[in-house]
């Protein structure tokens, strides 16, 4: 066995000292209510796994290990089963993301219309690569498959909002605006 594995083993010992499913990692009443609402739409509790992840992510921005355990407890499924679902879907974030998640469309039409160039511009401006978050915690850049707006390519989605016919100038404008917005927010 290689030494990396030995190192893993030590890590585990430490991890196991605290039961990952112990208290203090529970869902809020609101999150539970939101999940409960989903139950009526499905034939069994397990089926709500993805819905529950989505609902809680809406509240917390991402799914931490603790959150995952809390949801698993609530749904009475094992954390491994839930992880298996969570890691099957790209919009479930198992790592923290910034306040503005930029989904840059990388599919065929946007590519023809120059999304690579756009991406390079974005990466230069923000200093991050896909999957990364700016140090100020504002922007996360993600590449996404076709956003279904190909006639307005290149496009990107930020949070829930579409930005169409993008160009380097429009990107700069967008970044500036968002930076300002978040600066104002934190000043309040």
């Amino acid at each position: 066995m290689s030494s990396t594995i030995a190192a893993d083993t030590i890590e585990v010992m430490e991890q196991q000292d605290t039961d990952p499913r112990s208290a203090g990692r529970s869902l809020t009443a609101e999150e539970k209510r939101d999940i409960d609402r989903e139950f009526s739409h499905y034939e069994d509790r397990d089926s709500v796994a993805l819905e529950a992840l989505r609902v809680v992510q809406k509240h917390r921005g991402w799914i931490s290990d603790d959150t995952l355990y809390a949801i698993a407890d609530y749904l009475a499924v094992s954390p491994t089963q839930l992880e298996s679902i969570a890691t099957c879907y790209q919009l479930i974030f198992r790592q923290p993301v910034g306040k503005e998640v930029i989904f840059l469309c990388k599919s065929s039409s946007c590519w023809i219309m120059g999304c690579e160039k756009l991406q390079r511009h974005l990466e230069e401006q923000l200093g991050i690569r896909p999957g990364q978050t700016t140090p100020d915690g504002i922007f996360t850049l993600l590449e996404t498959p076709c956003l279904g707006d190909c006639d307005k390519a290149p496009v990107m989605m930020v949070g829930e909002e579409m930005h169409r016919h993008m160009s380097a100038d429009k990107l700069d404008e967008f970044i500036l605006e968002k930076k300002k917005h978040h600066a104002d927010q934190s000043a309040d």
Binding site: H41, V48, L50, S84, I85
Partner: peptide, 26 residues
């Protein structure tokens, strides 16, 4: 009921879609 998926192209394949709706891996 509107079921929102979470970013997985194979969910468009109808049987994978059914698995996904059941809360299983797509």
């Amino acid at each position: 009921h509107v079921h929102r998926s979470a970013g997985n192209y194979i969910c468009g394949e109808e049987t994978a879609l059914i698995n996904a709706l059941e809360g299983q891996r797509a």
